[in-house]
């Protein structure tokens, strides 16, 4: 009972430590290094954004943190223990919603509970989460009947129903239109504040990183290494035209190698 109650309030989140991680893939017999000696420490409940050019290896870092792969060198630790396998405590949300097209919205959201045999005892969570992402009226819809924003909300609900302690977001709003994206950014922020999970967001959108994250980490081109780590001190809600943020944006763009006049 106690454990269940704790899990539902999701008070405990994860500290994620990446220590000297390098990773390489073999592609058509060629060796491709994607990460080069990356180290970072994320405190429990912190919101961190990884910023970098596309194809630089940001997504690989998320896959390592999710436990879908193990690094070629170095360590990825959750609360000090190495991550070797996927676990529903750490959930990855992809750029494409990747909903299972043969399942309804409710079926998709229930996937994690079903896989762990928890559907019956946590059934109420499904409805709660659907309400949270404003999809309560769409639980019997199939993915092909949803708009892009709704599909991404359903994907978020599918992650949140497991009360993750670490949410890994791989450009989750990258394919949405700009208005939907703004709305979803605010919704994500609200969810993060209320649920208290640790969040690691991969993005190539400087504004998105500055609006959401406590800390923005800039990665170099492939093989990715850390170029800069910038703290964003502003309290939420943040405004895009806040002079402090505008200044930070300029310096981040410079670090990404883009000139002042952008």
């Amino acid at each position: 009972m106690m454990a269940l109650a704790l899990a539902e309030t999701a008070a405990d989140s994860i500290a994620l430590d990446v220590e000297g991680v390098s990773h390489r893939y073999e592609l058509d017999g060629k060796d491709l290094q994607v990460l080069d000696d990356v180290s970072l420490a994320i405190a429990p409940g912190e919101f961190v954004a990884l910023l970098g050019p596309s194809g630089c290896g940001k997504s690989t870092l998320l896959r390592l943190a999710a436990g879908l792969e193990t690094p070629t060198a170095g360590k990825v630790l959750e609360n000090g223990r190495p991550i070797t396998t996927p676990n529903p405590d750490r959930i990855l949300v992809f750029q494409d919603a990747t909903l299972f097209p043969w399942r309804t919205v409710r079926g998709n959201v229930a996937t994690g509970l079903e896989a762990r045999g928890l559907v019956r005892e946590r059934k109420h969570r499904i409805d709660e989460v659907l309400t949270l992402v404003k999809l309560e009226g769409f639980s019997d819809f199939y993915p092909h009947q949803l708009s892009g924003g709704m599909a991404q909300r359903a994907a978020l609900a599918r992650a949140l129903v497991n009360d993750p302690k670490l949410l890994l977001l791989d450009e989750p709003f990258g394919k949405l239109d700009s208005l939907t994206r703004l709305r979803m950014q605010n919704e994500l922020l609200d969810l993060w504040k209320s649920a208290g999970f640790t969040a690691l967001l991969v993005t190539h959108d400087v504004e998105e990183a500055l609006l959401l994250a406590d800390c923005v980490i800039v990665l170099s081109d492939r093989p990715a290494s850390i170029v800069a780590e910038v703290r964003v001190g502003q309290p939420h809600p943040r405004r895009r035209d806040d002079p402090n943020l505008v200044a930070l944006r300029r310096s981040l763009l410079e670090k990404l190698g883009i000139s002042h006049d952008v």
């Binding site: 896959r63 999710a66 436990g67 879908l68 996927p86 676990n87 529903p88 750490r90 959930i91 990855l92 992809f94 494409d96 990747t98 299972f100 043969w102 399942r103 996937t111 994690g112 079903e114 896989a115 762990r116 599918r158 497991n162």
Partner: peptide
Amino acid sequence: SFYDVARTLGADNRFLIFKVAIP
């Protein structure tokens, strides 16, 4: 990516075959 999603959600091989691969 369907397999990746299901694995991060806690699916075992049985679930991957019967609830992902087959449907």
